[in-house]
Nucleic acid binder design. Structure first.
Lengths: 194, 194
DNA sequence: CATATAGTTCAAGACCGCGTGAACTGCACC
DNA sequence: GGTGCAGTTCACGCGGTCTTGAACTATATG
């Protein structure tokens, strides 16, 4: 991730990088590609992964690595690695056009599947780990005993929150329906876990 | 953000950092503090902002900057800056205990308000910017004319997606109810914007 | 087999955010 | 005014990630 830690900065000075004068891209393409790059970076991936995917998506037809390299002004090696990542995540497919010797790459168009996939691979695993840590902490805290009730309650609140989030995420993976309201509802100020 | 770009790595080798032997923290505190630190970092903030907030939250009573400094093994300057950020975001309050000369800091306990606040300040502003960019791109694309219908459709699909996300977020800010299902539902493979 | 082009890998370096620590400000108390 | 402590600011260095570019492998073609 790069530059969106608004520690200061005027309101409205939101980062997102302006489209750099890249090669032959039409302005509208350039803007879109950069926009997606920004989103993807915000999500914790590499900006260029987003740019590559966006280009493929907008072009509709499969491009070769060389074309991507030129359009987005990336290095040969870089493109190779970016494509491999995208491929592994199912965001891009590698296709061989009959009669042709080079690989071409086309974007996965099912956005829902992509998002679900990412959430499954990354967020869910992460949240599970956090939930487990907090459960362990709770176990230990109860074990030592003699803690002020209030402190224990707070720890438990955090642990419960993590549990709810995990459950919501797993449900989302299965149904594509995410309901955060249920998770947070129980945690309005003062409300206790239930 | 730091280390969660699983470009490789075995499944299960999830990062999240193990509690380092920090000062006098009880093990359960240490685990919890680090867990929150990881979450916060994952969210695109600084790990230490999360650690500080977690410590204050778990202790229940306001701590001085010096105490935080010792407990979390941070530098004086660092703590000062971290607290300022947290304060600006309403995640921490600065309180003056009667009869005492030093500032103390206590954690905001309303998690819902905190999340809402962050989403409002950061995500919403960001998404708005993206949505605007894509709208502009669409305008330009239509302007040039003569584009293959398929390409235009794809651009429009992205733009519409951004619009929906923005609307959902703004609704969330007002109601604390987030329904992503609606946003994504319209974008299952093949489905067209409507 | 020689040559050329596509594709991969990886070490080196550019780049950038973060925390440190020292200098500085402000304030209380004697 | 002077001493000491709380708090702020900021230049710098460390540690991390991302990209480059060159060496390498693979594959097709004459």
């Amino acid at each position: 991730m790069k530059g969106y830690l608004w520690t200061g900065g005027e309101p409205g000075s939101q980062k997102t990088v302006a489209p750099p004068e890249n090669g032959r891209l039409a302005p509208w393409e350039s803007i879109s590609v950069e926009a997606v790059g920004n989103v993807i970076e915000f999500w914790g991936f590499k900006r260029n992964q987003g740019r590559v995917w966006a280009l493929l998506y907008l072009r509709g037809e499969p491009l070769t690595a060389g074309e991507i390299e030129r359009e987005l002004e990336l290095s040969k090696g870089g493109v190779s690695m970016l494509l491999r990542d995208l491929e592994r995540w199912g965001a891009v497919q590698r296709v061989r056009v009959p009669q042709d010797t080079v690989w071409r790459y086309s974007a996965e168009t099912d956005l829902v599947r992509m998002v679900t996939h990412v959430v499954e691979e990354r967020e869910a695993a992460f949240v599970t780990r956090i939930r487990a840590d907090l459960a362990e902490a709770r176990r230990l805290a109860v074990g030592v005993g003699g803690l002020p009730a209030e402190r224990l309650r707070r720890l438990e609140r955090m642990a419960t929150l993590a549990e709810h989030v995990e459950r919501a995420l797993r449900l989302f993976i299965r149904t594509s329906r995410l309901d955060v309201a249920g998770v947070l509802g129980a945690f309005r100020d003062g409300a206790l876990s239930r």
